[in-house]
Computed example of a mutant assay.
Amino acid sequence: MKYFVTSGEDRKLTADSRNALRGSFIELSDGVTHYELTGPEDGDVVLMAGGLTIPLFYWDGLVSELHARGLRTLTCSAYGRGYSDRVQARYDETLFTRQLAELTGRLGLTARPLHLVGTSMGALVSMTYAAQYRSSVSTLTIVGPAGLAKPRLASPNRLLRSDLLAGVVARRRGLQLLQGHLGHNVRDPELGAKLTEMVLGSLRFEGSLYAVFDTLQHLPFTGRDDLFRRTGALGIPTLLLWGDEDDVTPLVQFDTARALLKPQKHHVINKCGHMAPYERPRDVADQLVSFVSARAGRLDS
């Protein structure tokens, strides 16, 4: 799909504009990445990979909970999200995995135990990262993962494989479609409104809708059983979390995920939608901290 800018994208990401924005910035091989490395300096690092549209602010509640329990956190906005560059590239797992690998390397974090957390699309990226950098991953936490729905002939992903159709849909109805998607992510209307405001604010930067829809074209969100199965065979201690009222990746997929990932621990969070780290950060922290504290340390390659 050709790069485009829509009428609602009225802001540009530049060195000057970033001076007034929250977070830190680093130039990687594909572009500038927006990140925050915070928390106790002697704590194990928790690296977080997010979903299709979310900026790093999504993790704020969980970050606060983890800091209070002695863990250090590294959050970043994937390319095309938050204040990271809207790169003119193929938005797929290769791009996002390379971004995480380069970021941890440049920040000097590869020599320490790293606990990897992925939610929704970020779960697919995390699993890809874990396979490539297994020796640097101490634990893997998967939350409400995408990828287990069965491909359908009329699914949006199939329709968007056409560059021409994808470009037309993204330009004409992209923002409307994303707003509808965001409305299904959380149970609490107030939290849902805050989430929508957060995401729409970052979508004002030029190239945002291009980045999201190019991701929908090139990163498969269905039929990824093999990726789950390969991850389960890596031998990485894995925690699986799911919201019981998840309307995006329904709980009916939970048993399949368990069978493929073979997690050491699994837990369903009650009265929780798709975005457990955002909706129920304390509950996620409770599960995550007890899990990683028992398994701190680096796996042998």
Rank of each mutant, 00 (worst) to 15 (best):
R81T: 02
G8D: 11
S290V: 03
F4M: 09
T75L: 05
F57S: 03
S301K: 14
K265F: 13
R106N: 07
T104Q: 04
L66E: 07
L100M: 15
K194Y: 06
D30P: 00
V46C: 04
D255I: 00
R258M: 11
F254W: 11
S126H: 01
L140I: 05
R224S: 08
V46G: 02
E206Y: 13
W242H: 06
S155F: 12
I26R: 06
S7K: 11
H67F: 00
V252N: 10
A15N: 11
F291T: 01
H218D: 09
P237R: 00
P220S: 04
A285F: 07
K2W: 12
A233G: 04
T139W: 03
K265C: 08
G235I: 01
R258Q: 11
R81M: 06
G174V: 01
L148D: 14
E36P: 01
L56H: 14
T73Q: 07
L103P: 15
K265L: 12
A166Q: 14
D225V: 07
F213M: 04
D286Y: 07
T119D: 15
D226C: 00
E27T: 05
G43D: 06
L191M: 11
T139I: 00
R69H: 07
P113E: 02
D246Q: 08
I269P: 10
L52K: 07
G297Y: 00
G273C: 03
A101C: 06
M198F: 01
L103I: 06
R18C: 00
T94Q: 09
A170T: 05
R230S: 13
A149C: 08
D10I: 13
A149G: 14
T215K: 08
G31L: 05
T97Q: 13
A276Q: 09
D247N: 13
R280H: 09
A123C: 01
R90C: 10
P151I: 14
Q264E: 15
L148V: 13
F25E: 13
R173Q: 13
S202M: 02
T128V: 15
L95T: 03
L52Q: 11
G23D: 05
Y129I: 13
G80S: 08
T38S: 14
A15P: 02
V45P: 06
Q253E: 10
T238A: 07
L195M: 12
A211D: 02
D226A: 11
S17V: 11
H218C: 04
